[in-house]
Amino acid sequence: MNDLSELKRFVVAHAISQNLPAGHYTSLLERITSDTGDEPGSWAYEWIRAGDEAQAAGETLTACQYYVMGRFPFVDGPGRERALARCVEAFERWRREQPGIEPVVVEVDGLPVRVWAAGLSAEEPRPLLVMTGGIVSPKEQWGPVLPQIAAFGMAGVVADLPGVGESPLRYGPDGRRLFTAILDALDGRAKVSETYLLALSFSGHLAIGAALRDRRIRGLVGNGTPIHDFFTDTAWQARVPKVTRDTLAHLVGVPPEKVFAHVQDWALDDESLRDLEIPFATVSATRDEVIPPGDTERLRRCVRDLRLIEHPDVHGAPSHLAETRVWSLLAVQEMRPDADPRVTAALTGALQAARAGAGR
């Protein structure tokens, strides 16, 4: 069972990332009195009810976003299972109204994995941008960015981190094979030899592992990436929020009290980071309660082409969302040798506007 007060605190960052109105989700959270079950007052029920109301008003994408929050942080019973199903169904309805967004089934270790894609073309294959979320956010949370990726002249894919959402995979270091499998599956419909990964939070760790082994990956963008100390520093691990620990335990399939012993060998060492030959742009939060500061320092020390932005914020930098979103997309453009200068200029202007709006 989740700690309800902690759960409410952490879900706000994700609600902000989905541009949900604060006045609405604040009152919704006040109605929630139970983490479990699927009846009025329970976590899943109240988020699903808000999603149903949005769907009745014809706001399909907003409905999907509320359903995403209803399965947060992971499916642990019928209520959250119902929320995930509604989330996927709503995204399916929304994407059918968007030209060019399609499902693609990728085989990973013999298992079928569905991803959402846009901008694919056998006649004119484009450079590829693959986007993945962390341990608590399914692909449908990030899917609305696909039309924007296509507008940049790229093919785009959003995928679940192994074990998250619909993914049948088990989360672990071998989860990096997801990225290579996506590239193999899309070869011929995208220019996979020019692939960039926008891998948020824990998926950034897998993305680095993939990039060290797959030369088709030409650049990485991350946000709050666990590198080394998260996996090895027992003093820090004792401070990690319960929701993070329990979600990680659920994904790797061990009891929460054993999860850090289970992942201690996942740390990326200095030699591996020095072997990273491609640019790595990443966001770091100085008040991150999940990722220890030593991991950012290790990146500074070891990554040869590091492009780092730091925010005085918590994990994921939710209070700097507008700036972070534009900065991340601009980072991809700046890594591309053939990027459209008009897109780069537009994103540069948008970044300046976002910073001005935030008083930076």
Rank of each mutant, 00 (worst) to 15 (best):
E140A: 12
Q141K: 13
Q141P: 02
Q141N: 12
W142Q: 13
P144S: 05
P144I: 03
V145T: 15
L146I: 08
I149S: 06
A151K: 11
A151Y: 01
F152I: 03
G153H: 09
V157H: 11
V158K: 07
A159P: 04
D160I: 00
D160V: 01
D160F: 01
P162S: 12
V164W: 02
E166C: 04
E166S: 12
S167Y: 02
P168H: 11
L169Q: 09
L169F: 10
R170M: 12
R170F: 07
G172W: 01
D174C: 02
G175P: 08
R176S: 11
R176V: 08
L178K: 11
T180N: 12
D184T: 09
A185C: 13
A185M: 01
L186Y: 10
L186H: 10
D187Y: 09
D187P: 09
G188E: 10
A190Q: 09
A190D: 07
A190K: 11
K191C: 13
V192I: 14
E194G: 00
Y196P: 06
Y196C: 04
L197Q: 04
A199I: 01
S201L: 05
S201P: 09
F202K: 07
F202C: 14
S203D: 02
H205D: 03
H205K: 03
L206P: 09
L206S: 10
I208E: 00
A210R: 04
A211F: 00
A211V: 01
R213V: 08
R213S: 14
D214E: 13
D214C: 07
R218C: 06
T225F: 00
T225L: 13
T225K: 00
T225R: 02
H228T: 10
H228G: 06
D229F: 10
F230Y: 15
T232C: 04
T232I: 02
D233G: 06
A235E: 13
Q237P: 08
Q237C: 08
Q237I: 04
Q237D: 06
R239S: 15
V240L: 04
V240F: 03
P241V: 08
P241W: 02
P241S: 09
V243H: 10
T244I: 14
R245Q: 14
R245L: 09
D246N: 13
D246G: 00
T247Y: 05
L248W: 02
L248F: 09
L248N: 07
A249L: 06
H250Q: 12
H250S: 13
V252I: 15
V254M: 03
P255Y: 03
P255S: 04
K258C: 03
F260C: 11
A261D: 14
Q264I: 03
W266T: 11
A267R: 11
L268C: 06
D270C: 05
E271A: 15
S272T: 11
S272Y: 00
S272L: 15
R274A: 13
E277V: 10
E277D: 14
E277M: 08
I278F: 03
I278D: 01
